[in-house]
């Protein structure tokens, strides 16, 4: 679906706030707090947008990215992170081509929205 968004982030409050923002913008939003749940949702749902926290408990966001690459799932992926300079790491892992954009936390909401809508 064009406007279906999945948020994978272990910060519950952050996920809730972001989900609310996106819902007000007209998106259908689902959230997952870890990689496992996130991957399960990705497999079922027809998301067009993924907002992925880079640092997740147990496995990092890289695991989700590898999963997407493997399944050849087609969706816009935004990696949000508190850790700077992860672009280089993504390149090394060969995952940069499936990531639409890396957004550093904290980010201006307007900035995120404009990237999602682009």
């Amino acid at each position: 679906m064009e406007n279906k968004v999945l948020i994978i982030d272990d910060d519950v409050e952050l996920s809730q706030e972001l989900a609310e923002i996106l819902k007000l913008e007209g998106y259908i939003v689902e959230t997952a707090l870890n990689c496992k749940d996130g991957k399960a949702l990705l497999e079922k749902g027809d998301f067009s947008i993924l907002i992925l926290d880079y640092r997740l408990p147990k496995q990092s966001g890289l695991d989700v990215l590898r999963f997407i690459k493997e399944k050849k799932t087609r969706l816009k992926t935004f990696v949000v992170t508190g850790k700077p300079f992860i672009e280089k790491l993504l390149k090394e892992e060969g995952l940069n081509d499936i990531v639409t954009s890396v957004i550093n936390k904290p980010f201006r909401v307007e900035n995120l929205l404009s990237q999602i809508k682009a």
Binding site: D11, E13, L14, E17, L18, E20, I21, L24, V80, G82, K83, N104, K105, P106, F107, R108, V109
Partner: peptide, 20 residues
């Protein structure tokens, strides 16, 4: 610094929602 970025992001979004 890293640890602060997550809560800051949440605060930013919460204030955005408040504003609206």
């Amino acid at each position: 610094a890293h640890e602060l970025r997550n809560p800051l992001a949440a605060i930013e979004m919460a204030s955005y929602n408040l504003k609206r």
